[in-house]
Design a protein around this nucleic acid. Sequence first.
DNA 1: GCCAAAACTTAACTTATGATAGTGATTCGG
DNA 2: CCGAATCACTATCATAAGTTAAGTTTTGGC
Lengths: 243, 243
Amino acid sequence: MLSALIQKLESLEPLSDDAQSRLRKLPVRVVNFAPREDLVRESEPRGDVRILIEGVASRYKALDGGHQAILGFLLPGDIDETDAFADRLDHGIAAVTASKVAQVPRLMFDQLLLDIPEIGRAFRRMARLEESIRRIWLANMGQRVADKQAAHLLCELRVRFAAVGMGGVDWFTNPLTQEHLANVLGISAVHMNRVMQHLRELGLIKIEGHTLRFPAPAKMDRYADFDGGYLNSAAHERPRERQ
Amino acid sequence: MLSALIQKLESLEPLSDDAQSRLRKLPVRVVNFAPREDLVRESEPRGDVRILIEGVASRYKALDGGHQAILGFLLPGDIDETDAFADRLDHGIAAVTASKVAQVPRLMFDQLLLDIPEIGRAFRRMARLEESIRRIWLANMGQRVADKQAAHLLCELRVRFAAVGMGGVDWFTNPLTQEHLANVLGISAVHMNRVMQHLRELGLIKIEGHTLRFPAPAKMDRYADFDGGYLNSAAHERPRERQ
DNA sequence: GCCAAAACTTAACTTATGATAGTGATTCGG
DNA sequence: CCGAATCACTATCATAAGTTAAGTTTTGGC
C-alpha cells in the first residue's frame, strides 16, 4: 500500500529490510477522494498522518477574494507534512485527480520514527528536498518572463513524474489543466495558453492528449535554465549525519 | 554573544535556565563582514554553524546571466541552516549591512542538540516558522499586482524587524535598498520605485531617511492582505510534540 | 452515443511592467 | 572636506501580461 512512499524514501536513503517491512506493516486506512475534493482543509486540526498513494494533489492557500493560490503539487509518495510536527496545516490540500490516501495513526507513525532512526533520517532528507524545491521555485518566479518560468516548471514536473512512474526522460502524463499551471505561476489562464503555444512553436513541447512530450529535452533544459540535480542528487552525495 | 538567537528561540519556546546557560557557554568565534561580502558562498562545503548576531543579510541564488535572485533576508538571531543537516548550501548568503556572525564548531552544536532536547525542539519550531514564511511568500508572489506584493513584503519586514528591536508597530529601520526589494519581488528597480511612490501617495508609507513609517498600519495591513499571525503565533498555540 | 460542462484557443483592447537613459541627492572612503 | 560611488527618482518608449468575450474542442456522466 505504501510502496510509492517506500520507493521515494529509498531513492533518498537506502532502507534496510527491517525498516521496509516495518513500513509495510503500518496499519493504514485507505480513503478515496474525487477530483477537487479536499484531502485536508486549511487550518483543520491534524489527525492521522496522510500519505498520497495514488493520484495528484495540490497545496493551496486561500486568498482574500475567495481565490486560492496553488503553492505546489503532491505526487504519489508525498506526505501531508514532512516533518509531522505541526498541529495543523497553514494551508489546504485538494485532489487534482481521483486520489487514494493512506492514513496512518499518528502514534504509530511517531513510534516508528523513534524505533528506526534510519526512517527518521530518510524523512529529514525528504524535508530537505522539498525545501530545496521551494527555493528553486522562488528563484524561478523571480525570473522576468513567464515563458521561462513555465518551461522550468514543466521540466521539474517531468522529472518528478518520471520518478513515480508517470513519465520518462522526454515525456510525462499530465493531469494538470492550464488553469492549474497558470495559478501556480501567478499568471492568467489566457496567458498560460499563449505561453504553451509559444513553447510549442519553439518545438520545445508537444501535446498529445494527456501526454506532454519534450522533443528536445536538452534544448528545453537550456531554455528553462533547468538543472535537475536538486531533484535527485540527494541519493548520491550522501552527507554524514548525526545518528 | 548569542543573545539575539536566544531571544528568538525563546519567543518560540521558553527555554530553561540550563538550556540558556548552555547556549551562552557555546564557544563562538565572532567574524565581521562588510556589506556585499559573502557570509557563505554558494555550494561551499559546510564548516561551522553560523549565526547572524548583528546586521542584515540576504540569501541568494545565482542565475544564468551572472544575475542573482534574492530568496529572502536574514535578521539577527537567524541561523545559516535551520536544520543543520545539509553538507552544503544550495545557495549563498551575503551581508547587506556590516554584520557580525558567530561561528560555532559543528560538533559542539550537534552535541548540544543531543544533550538538551528542548533546544532541538526550539530549532524545529524555527524551521517551521521559516517554512511558513516561505509559503506565504509563494502565495504572495502569485498575487497579480506588484503594489500589493510590495506592501505585503514591507508588512512582513516591519514585524520581523520589530522582533529584533529594529522597529515598532508602525515603523522600522530599513537597511535595504529599493534594488534589494525589487530583486526579491522579481520586478525591476525602476518599477519598485514607482510602487514606493504609489504607496506613499496612498498614505500607506512614509520615508524618513532610513526609517520607514506606516502612518496607518491597520490600513496598510488591509491593503496588503497581511495577517502577521504566522510570524508570532508559534509562541501561543504550542502543539504537543514527541520528546 | 448524446448532451452539458470543462478545457482549450483566439482575438481585441487595456494596463502593468521592463529597458534605457538621464538627473540630483546621499553616502563614504581617504 | 572632497570626489566617486551608490542610491533615489523621473521621463520616454517598448513589450509582456491582464481582461473580456467570444468560439471550438474534449471530457465525462447518464
